[in-house]
Simulated scan of single mutants.
Amino acid sequence: MNSVDAAGLEIGDEHPPRIMGVLNVSEESPYDPSVYDDPAEAAAYVDEALIGEGADIVDIGLESANKRFEVLSAEEELERLDVALETIVSVSGEAIFSIETRYADVADAALARGFDMVNDISGFADPRMPTVCEDYDAAVAKMASPPDLERPGAVEETDWSTRKSPAWAAEADYVDMVYEALKQNGLTEKTIVDPAFGGWSEAQTLADDQETFRRLREFRALERPMLVSINRKNFLGSIADRETDDRLPVSLAATSMAVERGAHVIRTHDVGETRDAALIGSAFADRTSHRIDDLTVSQLEAGSTRELEAKLREYDVDPSLIDDTVHHVLEIDGLSSADGTALESVTDEREATCVKLGAGRWILVGSSTEIARISAHLGDSTPNLSSLTDALGRIVS
């Protein structure tokens, strides 16, 4: 899992969950408490209700993404940018400022004048967006979306037969489409992926969002930090039969679960409460990762065999390796070529499998017993692999 440095704010497995508070400078936005068009009032809101309550990132939207409203052009967004810029200059607290936009020209102007990162709800539909973000060495949240600036998030409306293949399109379910949409148009080294919760199209259902949430761990295979925007969303309210104003409890419950399932950034209007819920999720996350010297050993998690198989397919590893005896799938990062060969030689003699992913990176699949035996054997025969044997021992202990 790659960490992302967002203007000095580290985002990833080895860091606390980050809270992204929301400010809108658009009169169309449906959630009134976060909407301001006066820079002084907006700055006061940011200082008190966002940064003051624990927001690490402040995401400023220039227009409502609600599909009921007409999409603004880049020129119209740029006309509103001055309010956002005046706001961040007036803020006294410390935070990372994110501009929510689908346009590379707007991102360029915002990054040049004080913003730190970009939140692109159109999934790089503007082909220049990745280049602009890379030019400024800026982090960018990429929401799953078709390559269409006017239809953010509408992944089911993408012509997957053309963009992927007819056979794939015939078999793909909604979560498969979300996953593939995030891969389309590539990922920068500083991309944060967003699985696109919410009613982005008429085709998207509450069941789609619920299934995406259930399978949230699968998106970790993209090896980028993950942002989720689930605050007061319909798919949560429908479970408890609550309207928007009464959905804070279900949002907080889902926040803890999202962080436990691998989310790194939570976008919310309810900053203080969400921060606390995220910390609880982080404290009890069943995610094991050990870093010793220059070596990192991470236990890939999965809530079901299907999720685990999806992870292995992403690494081009045969998913049939999974059977009733498999208890651990470990990603090892930082091995030298010689040490990797030594590990592979040991696993060849046991009921375990080692697969090379790339320079310094390996997948080790085996039961707790076999992993422990491999660790002991390496410890006895290969002293220079003490960091690996230590990490393996901690995982299976």
Score class of each variant (00 low, 15 high):
residue 9 L to G: 02
residue 12 G to L: 10
residue 13 D to C: 09
residue 15 H to T: 07
residue 17 P to A: 07
residue 23 L to N: 01
residue 25 V to T: 09
residue 26 S to N: 02
residue 27 E to I: 14
residue 30 P to F: 10
residue 37 D to L: 14
residue 38 D to E: 14
residue 40 A to T: 11
residue 42 A to E: 15
residue 44 A to H: 02
residue 49 A to C: 05
residue 50 L to H: 05
residue 50 L to P: 01
residue 54 G to W: 14
residue 57 I to N: 03
residue 59 D to E: 05
residue 61 G to E: 12
residue 71 V to A: 02
residue 73 S to M: 12
residue 73 S to Q: 03
residue 74 A to Q: 11
residue 84 A to C: 09
residue 88 I to F: 06
residue 91 V to F: 00
residue 95 A to K: 04
residue 95 A to H: 07
residue 96 I to H: 07
residue 97 F to Q: 07
residue 100 E to Q: 11
residue 102 R to I: 08
residue 105 D to M: 11
residue 105 D to T: 08
residue 108 D to Y: 15
residue 115 F to H: 01
residue 120 D to A: 09
residue 122 S to F: 08
residue 125 A to S: 11
residue 128 R to M: 04
residue 135 D to K: 03
residue 135 D to L: 04
residue 139 A to M: 02
residue 145 S to H: 07
residue 148 D to L: 12
residue 148 D to Y: 07
residue 149 L to A: 03
residue 150 E to K: 09
residue 153 G to M: 12
residue 154 A to Y: 11
residue 154 A to M: 00
residue 159 D to A: 13
residue 175 V to Y: 00
residue 178 V to D: 04
residue 180 E to R: 10
residue 181 A to G: 04
residue 182 L to F: 12
residue 183 K to H: 07
residue 186 G to R: 09
residue 187 L to K: 06
residue 194 D to R: 02
residue 194 D to V: 01
residue 195 P to K: 05
residue 202 E to W: 04
residue 208 D to L: 05
residue 209 D to F: 08
residue 213 F to W: 01
residue 215 R to Y: 00
residue 218 E to T: 14
residue 219 F to L: 06
residue 223 E to N: 09
residue 225 P to D: 09
residue 237 G to H: 08
residue 238 S to D: 15
residue 240 A to L: 14
residue 243 E to F: 04
residue 245 D to L: 05
residue 245 D to N: 12
residue 245 D to F: 00
residue 249 P to S: 12
residue 251 S to K: 13
residue 254 A to N: 09
residue 255 T to Q: 13
residue 255 T to I: 10
residue 259 V to E: 00
residue 260 E to V: 11
residue 262 G to M: 02
residue 263 A to W: 11
residue 264 H to E: 05
residue 269 H to K: 02
residue 273 E to Q: 01
residue 275 R to Y: 00
residue 279 L to M: 11
residue 279 L to H: 04
residue 281 G to A: 13
residue 282 S to Y: 11
residue 284 F to G: 08
residue 286 D to I: 14
residue 288 T to M: 12
residue 289 S to V: 12
residue 289 S to F: 10
residue 291 R to D: 10
residue 294 D to W: 13
residue 295 L to A: 05
residue 299 Q to S: 05
residue 301 E to R: 12
residue 302 A to T: 09
residue 303 G to D: 03
residue 308 L to P: 05
residue 310 A to N: 11
residue 311 K to T: 14
residue 311 K to P: 00
residue 311 K to F: 13
residue 311 K to M: 13
residue 313 R to L: 08
residue 315 Y to E: 10
residue 315 Y to A: 03
residue 318 D to C: 08
residue 319 P to I: 06
residue 320 S to F: 03
residue 321 L to T: 01
residue 322 I to Y: 01
residue 327 H to P: 04
residue 331 E to N: 03
residue 332 I to D: 13
residue 333 D to T: 15
residue 336 S to H: 08
residue 336 S to K: 07
residue 338 A to M: 01
residue 342 A to Y: 03
residue 346 V to K: 02
residue 346 V to F: 05
residue 353 T to L: 02
residue 355 V to A: 06
residue 355 V to H: 06
residue 357 L to V: 07
residue 357 L to P: 09
residue 359 A to D: 14
residue 359 A to G: 04
residue 360 G to I: 15
residue 360 G to K: 06
residue 368 S to H: 06
residue 368 S to Y: 03
residue 369 T to Y: 11
residue 370 E to Q: 14
residue 371 I to Q: 04
residue 371 I to P: 00
residue 375 S to Y: 04
residue 383 P to I: 06
residue 384 N to Q: 08
residue 384 N to H: 13
residue 386 S to P: 01
residue 390 D to L: 07
residue 390 D to N: 02
residue 395 I to N: 00
residue 396 V to L: 07
